[in-house]
C-alpha cells in the first residue's frame, strides 16, 4: 500500500545549518498494517510523514502509494491518497468555519471542487450519524464554529475528517500529544476504532512507548534519520518497554535517552 525506497532528506543543504533528517529510509506497508513509529526528538519521524504527504520533496529515493509513484506529486495532489492528523489541534480544521463545512471539505478530499452547493442535506444526515458515534455530543453542533470546540473535540473531528473519504494511508503525527491524558486516551481509542472499522493502513507517530506497544501490529523505531527497529507479529505482541529499550540500545549502540517516553 505504501512503499518508501531509499529516501534521503537534507534540510538547508550547503549551509552551516545543513541537516540530514532522513538517511536511506526504506519501508513497505501492507494493506491494513497499523504501524506505530517511535523515536527521540529530532529522529526524523515528522520529516518522514511530511515527505510521504509531500510537504517536502525528497532528495533521493522514491515513494509509492497504492502502486502510484507520488515522489514528484505536490502535496495537494497526494492528498487524494492520504488522511492526516497533526500534533497541533489547530492545524487540522478551518477554525472560522462551522463544523459541517469542515466535514464537507474533507468529504470531497481529492475531488475537483465545482459550483455545486458546498453541503447537501443528505450529507448532513451522514455527518450527524458519524458524529454521534464519537460520543462527544457533536452531532448537535454542526453549525458551531470549530474554534469554539476543545482541543480533544477538534482532534476527534480531524480524525473523522481524515477517514471520511477512506484514505489509502492514514498518517498520524503525535495527534494526542497536545491533549491532557484523559482526552488523549479517548482520542486514541477512537483512533483505533476508526482504523479497525475502516480497515485503514496507518502510520502513527507517538512519543509514548506503552502506546506504541499497545496499538498496531507493527512497531518501528527511528533514530538520527534511520529506521533502527522493525518489530511485528507475535514478537510485537509480547514486547515490553524494558525489552524495547534494551533492543534500541543494542541496535543503535546508544542508550535511549528520552525521558518523556519513560515517564508514562
Amino acid at each position: 500500500m505504501l512503499r518508501i525506497d531509499g529516501v534521503y532528506k537534507v534540510f538547508n543543504p550547503g549551509t552551516v545549518n545543513q541537516k540530514t533528517a532522513l538517511r536511506n529510509v526504506s519501508l513497505t506497508m501492507k494493506e491494513g498494517d497499523f504501524i506505530t513509529l517511535i523515536g527521540g526528538n529530532g529522529a526524523g519521524k515528522s520529516t518522514l510523514l511530511n515527505c510521504i504527504a509531500g510537504v517536502y520533496g525528497v532528495d533521493k529515493g522514491s515513494i509509492n502509494i497504492a502502486e502510484v509513484d507520488v515522489t514528484k506529486l505536490t502535496e495537494y495532489k497526494r492528498a487524494a491518497f492520504l488522511g492526516r492528523v497533526f500534533q497541533d489541534p489547530m492545524m487540522g480544521t478551518a477554525s472560522d468555519m462551522i463544523l459541517e463545512e469542515n466535514l464537507a471539505l474533507a468529504l470531497r478530499r481529492g475531488k475537483a471542487r465545482g459550483l455545486r452547493w458546498g453541503i447537501s442535506n443528505k450529507e448532513r444526515e451522514v455527518y450527524r450519524e458519524l458524529l454521534s458515534h464519537l460520543g462527544l455530543g457533536l452531532e448537535h453542533r454542526l453549525n458551531v464554529k470549530v474554534k469554539l470546540l476543545s482541543g480533544g473535540q477538534r482532534q476527534a473531528i480531524t480524525l473523522l475528517m481524515a477517514t471520511l473519504n477512506k484514505p489509502k494511508v492514514l498518517l498520524l503525527d503525535e495527534h494526542t500529544a497536545a491533549l491532557d491524558p484523559k482526552t488523549a486516551s479517548i482520542v486514541l481509542d477512537l483512533t483505533e476504532r476508526l482504523i479497525h472499522e475502516n480497515g485503514l493502513t496507518t502510520l502513527m507517530v507517538t512519543h509514548n512507548m506503552r502506546d506504541a506497544i499497545r496499538y498496531g501490529n507493527r512497531l518501528i523505531m527511528m533514530h538520527d534519520g534511520r529506521i533502527f527497529l522493525d518489530i511485528q507479529g507475535e514478537e510485537k505482541k509480547k514486547l515490553t518497554v524494558e525489552e524495547l529499550l534494551a533492543r534500541f540500545g543494542s541496535a543503535s549502540g546508544q542508550e535511549f535517552s528520552y525521558d518523556r517516553a519513560l515517564l508514562s
Binding site: A53, E75, Y76, K77, A79, A80, L82, R84, F86, M90, M91, G92, T93, A94, S95, D96, M97, L105, A106, R108, R109, G110, K111, M161
Partner: peptide, 10 residues
C-alpha cells in the same frame, strides 16, 4: 483560514 488543512484536503 487554514491553508495547511486545505492542502491536506487536496
Amino acid at each position: 483560514n487554514n491553508p495547511y488543512m486545505v492542502r491536506a484536503q487536496g
